[in-house]
Design a protein around this nucleic acid. Structure first.
Lengths: 253, 253
DNA sequence: GATAGAATCCGGCAATGGCGGAAATAATAT
DNA sequence: ATATTATTTCCGCCATTGCCGGATTCTATC
């Protein structure tokens, strides 16, 4: 079946509308109609349906994504066993380092931040729970890829490509595969300004019994602080220790 | 226009499928088809579409709500100014009392928990972020209703009714309206096992400049601990103080 | 109060969502 | 292993309905 065509086109349009609203943080009928290149009447039909069903709200003459999605999102998150177990560990990682600490899972070939904690000195960042990122562009994602079978990695790269996000993003497939090998050997991954200028990151996988990475934890901060021994020894040690604690708790609970 | 009929029926069906999946925490095609009384082929069409679009995941032969909804939910939440401002206050309420502390907003005539914090001694509860509740059945909801115009309150009651959730739920419309009057007078609301057996709750509104309740904060705990002066004086004082701090910060930021 | 822009409403028609039934796949029993 | 049953997926028809253009109403702004 063609990947581009879906059985229920109307549902796709509705979600396109929802995503457009999310990106814009609210919008009117005609603005959306222009953006999605559809008649205002059609967009209006979808907006009205979604509002009536309680998924959108109309505030200040604008349609916005409603808090109802929170219920769906929270359910998706809390159903993941790793979330409950990793959460306190991510919190203490953030506290110990003063930086951002994150928990990422893979879904549909993309990384999804399940949770993030901010330490005392954490810089302002674009990341937030629910945010999706290309796996290759983060230390978190690379650790997950490292413990996936080669053919699955290839499939993910085929689907999402290797775009250059910053000057340091790995854009060569073989180079990436080599790096995944290195990650497997030393047990953790580094990200040196590969997704965000000036930000470095250290991540370790949370492995299941059969050596699959079900998630990854990380610490990320500005290059100035993530340097020297701290970047190559202290932080990796902390992150590995956390990942290990989570792994153990996953097995025995 | 008839409230029951929507322009895009297919979108409604898709969301019915999603909600059914949420309730069941995952399900198969035929299980859903039975529950929604629709042919398996139709349900399958919707599931496939939603999975292909990245909103559902297929794990262990079951369809489940995907973490992608987290992105929508988080966006809906963080766009609310009150969330960012109230969050630290709710945290400290939970810490000071050792109980649950909550932040609720109104949407489509229902209460939605935007945030909740657990204190040290907090009991296990069914509430979670994103959860929706009838406004009349919680102290939080009643405070919000208390600061809405009478006709709006009537409309909400007409739409959602006054079902008896526990033995203590207020089911009489006039009795409720009287209570709202009392709440306006003293500035906070009480919930004495009206939604959950054994649980009591104290809530205060967060008022905008024009005296509309844009949200409410509360502390809730077991009847045994929420009694005497603590229930009628100490906790109300704490909750009112928090609500006030939030109000001030809402105006000056 | 006039004007422009945006949001609704409405009705027709082609597209497509819904459906039954068949085929494929998975699970279970024999 | 093999048969049996349950579940999922595929397929094509047909009536429904989603989509659209255009008219109308609403809402700002001058």
């Amino acid at each position: 079946m063609d990947e581009r065509t879906v059985p229920i086109k109307a549902a796709k349009v509705s979600f396109d509308v929802i995503e457009a609203l999310r990106e814009r943080e609210g919008a009117g009928v005609s603005e959306l109609a222009t953006a999605l290149e559809m008649p205002t009447s059609t967009i209006h039909d979808h907006l009205r349906t979604l509002e009536q069903q309680g998924y959108l709200v109309k505030e200040d003459g604008e349609y916005r994504v409603g808090a109802r999605f929170l219920e769906l999102g929270e359910q998706a998150r809390s159903r993941k066993k790793v979330y409950g177990i990793a959460r306190p560990e991510v919190d203490s990682l953030a506290e110990e380092t003063g930086e951002h600490a994150n928990l990422l899972i893979e879904e549909h070939g993309l990384g999804v931040f399940l949770y993030k904690a901010r330490g005392e000195d954490a810089v302002n960042l674009d990341t937030h729970a629910g945010m999706r990122v290309l796996l290759q562009t983060t230390a978190l994602g690379k650790t997950i890829l490292a413990y996936r079978p080669r053919e699955e990695v290839e499939a993910i790269l085929d689907e999402h490509g290797l775009p250059e996000i910053t000057a340091n993003t790995v854009t060569d497939r073989d180079e990436l595969l080599d790096e995944l090998e290195t990650i497997r050997e030393r047990g953790y991954a580094l990200d040196d300004e590969e997704r965000v200028q000036g930000m470095r990151c250290v991540a370790a996988p949370i492995l299941s019994d059969d050596q699959e990475a079900i998630a990854a934890v990380s610490v990320s901060g500005p290059r100035s602080r993530m340097a020297g021994d701290r970047y190559t020894e202290e932080i990796p040690e902390l992150v590995l220790r956390s990942a290990n604690v989570i792994e153990v708790n996953m097995t025995y609970s």
